[in-house]
Design a protein around this nucleic acid. Structure first.
Lengths: 283, 283
DNA sequence: TATTAAATCTCGTGG
DNA sequence: CCACGAGGTTTAATA
C-alpha cells in the first residue's frame, strides 16, 4: 500500500463527516465508520434496527457491512451496491446504499460518530488456497478406497445418475457394485436421501446387478442413521483431520513449513489448557 | 458510548502494536487492524493465504474477521474464540486465535501495519426486527389458506413429522390431507425433497389417509418442477410483495412511518435510473 | 443467465 | 448438547 493514504477522524461533526464520506464514496475508497445509527433495509426481505453503536464497513466495490459489537454475522449488509450516497438530514447523517439486481436498499442514519477511517490503495492479489473440501476428500478416498473398505475397486467418480452425480462408484470383493456418497461434515437425512435416490436409480437401470450404498462422513445424525438403516444402506466413519494428515504425508496435498507446524499442533498437539498457558490468558 | 475510549495508531511499529493489542485483547476491546498479513487456518477445514492488505476485526466476544479489499465475505474468520494472543516473531507480528469446540486455529502474521483502532464500551441493545420471514409468511398463509386453494381448512402449523416439521397441515374440500411447504424464495430441488420427506413420513404413519403435498413459493426452478411432478406433488405460486402488502393492510404486520415509506418506495416506487439521479452518481 | 450444491457456512429454536 | 431448518444466506462451478 502507498503511504499517506489514510485519513482518520475522531468524533467528527456530522457535517464534516458528510463531506469526507461523499468524496470517499465517489473515489471508491475503503471506509470504516464507528458510530450510533439506525438501520432500515428493504429488498429480498425487510428489516429495521433501532439506535445503537455499530461498525460500518464500505469497501471499494460497494460491499457494505453493518456490524454490531458481537458475532460473526453483520446485522445488515449489501453484497455490492451500485449507489452509495450520504445526505445531511434533521435526524442525522444518512448513508444510503442501493443495489439494482435484486433491488435492495439499505439506509443508515447516524446520530453520533465516534471515528471514521478512510483508506485508499489497499492491495491484495494473493491466492487463497483451501484444503480438503468435499472434492478433495472424494478424490483422496477414490485414490485410497481401502480407507472405506478393504478390497474396494473404484470404477469411476462423479458418475451421473439421474439428476445428480454419485461421488464414487466401485465394486467390492464379491463383485457387487458400491455407490459411495461422501460428506466432509456431519451427515443428515438429506445426505441419506441423496444416496438412496442414486441407489434406486442405479437399480432401475441395472435390475440384475447387486448394489450397496455407503455413506462416508465424519459423523451422522441419529435420525439419519435410522433412515439409512431402514433403507438398507451403510455408513463408514472417517476422520477428516487424519485423512488430511495422510494426504499431506503421501504428497497428495502439498505442505509448507507453516501448514506443517499448524498440522502438528493439531494432530499431535497440546491441550487447550497448555495452549492457554503458552499464549497467556488472552481473551 | 462513553467518550475518550478510542485509541488510534497510524503506521505503528510492530513492537508498539504488540503491546497495545495484548492489552486490548485482554480487556475484550473492539479492535480493527489494517495491515499487510498472511493467514493460516486449520480446523474444520484448512486454508492458506499469502501476503496482502487486509482489514482484521476482533470483537469483544472473540469473533474475528479477516476482510480483503472487496466482497461481502471474510476470507478467514473465527465465529468466536476462547484465546486471542499476539506474539512478536522474526517474520512479523503474530495474531493467533484459537477456538475450542470445534478446535480451530487462525493465525495471522503482519509484516506492515497501516492503522490500528481500539474502541471500548460500544453499546448496542436495540432489537432487530425482520418482516416477512418464512415464519411470518407461513402464519399469514395459515390464516388465509384461500390464498393457496379455496376450501382449504388448516389443521395445524409446524406439525412435527419425525424430527422435522411440516409448515402447514390442512384438509381440502374433499377431506384429503394436504401438507404444505412454504418457501419465501425461489424453490429448488431441496425444497421439493423436503416436502417429499414429510409426505412419505405422513403416509407411513397414516397408511389409509389420502394426502396431497403442495409447495408454495414465489418461483420454482425448472428441475425442481420436474422432480415435483414426478413425485406427484403440486406447486402454488405466491407473490411475496403482494402478501406483504396484504399483511400490512390487514394489520397482521405492524408498520411505522419508516417502513411505510420504504414499502411505497418498493411497491409504487421509482426506477433505478431515477434513483441514481436523485442521489447523484455516488459509487 | 439460471441452477445447483457446498460452506470453516452462521444462527436461532426445540427437544 | 444435538439436530433441524432458515437465511436478505454467499460463493463457486456448471449448463
Amino acid at each position: 500500500m502507498k503511504k499517506d493514504t489514510i485519513t482518520v477522524m475522531l468524533n467528527p461533526e456530522l457535517k464534516h463527516a458528510h463531506e469526507v464520506l461523499t468524496e470517499a464514496f465517489a473515489k471508491h475508497k475503503f471506509v470504516v465508520i464507528f458510530g450510533s445509527c439506525t438501520a432500515t433495509y428493504q429488498g429480498r426481505g425487510a428489516s429495521r434496527l433501532g439506535p445503537g453503536d455499530r461498525m460500518v464497513v464500505i469497501k471499494p466495490d460497494g460491499a457494505m457491512l453493518v456490524h454490531r459489537p458481537t458475532g460473526y454475522s453483520p446485522v445488515n449488509w449489501q453484497p455490492d451496491s451500485q449507489v452509495i450516497a450520504t445526505e445531511l438530514r434533521d435526524e442525522g447523517l444518512l448513508v444510503r446504499s442501493v443495489r439494482g439486481k435484486p433491488r435492495e436498499v439499505l439506509e443508515l442514519v447516524f446520530t453520533k460518530l465516534y471515528a471514521i477511517v478512510v483508506i485508499e490503495g489497499l492491495e491484495d492479489t494473493a491466492e487463497f488456497i483451501e484444503y480438503m473440501d468435499e472434492a478433495e476428500l472424494r478424490d483422496y478416498l477414490a485414490s485410497n478406497p481401502e480407507e472405506i473398505e478393504p478390497g474396494l475397486r473404484v470404477i469411476r467418480i462423479e458418475r451421473p445418475i439421474g439428476e445428480g452425480y454419485a461421488d464414487i462408484v466401485a465394486r467390492d470383493r464379491e463383485g457387487r457394485y458400491v455407490i459411495i456418497e461422501v460428506k466432509r461434515v456431519n451427515a443428515g437425512k438429506d445426505a441419506v436421501q441423496q444416496l438412496h435416490r442414486y441407489i434406486e436409480k442405479f437399480r432401475s437401470e441395472n435390475p440384475a446387478a447387486p448394489v450397496r450404498g455407503i455413506l462416508v462422513a465424519p459423523s451422522i445424525s441419529k435420525e439419519a442413521k435410522k433412515l439409512l438403516e431402514k433403507l438398507g444402506l451403510e455408513y463408514r466413519q472417517v476422520n477428516i483431520a487424519e485423512i488430511y494428515r495422510k494426504a499431506v504425508e503421501t504428497g497428495e496435498i502439498k505442505r509448507d513449513t507453516k501448514t506443517r507446524s499448524l498440522l502438528e499442533f493439531f494432530t499431535e498437539g497440546s491441550k487447550a489448557s497448555q495452549l492457554r498457558h503458552q499464549l497467556g490468558r488472552g481473551l
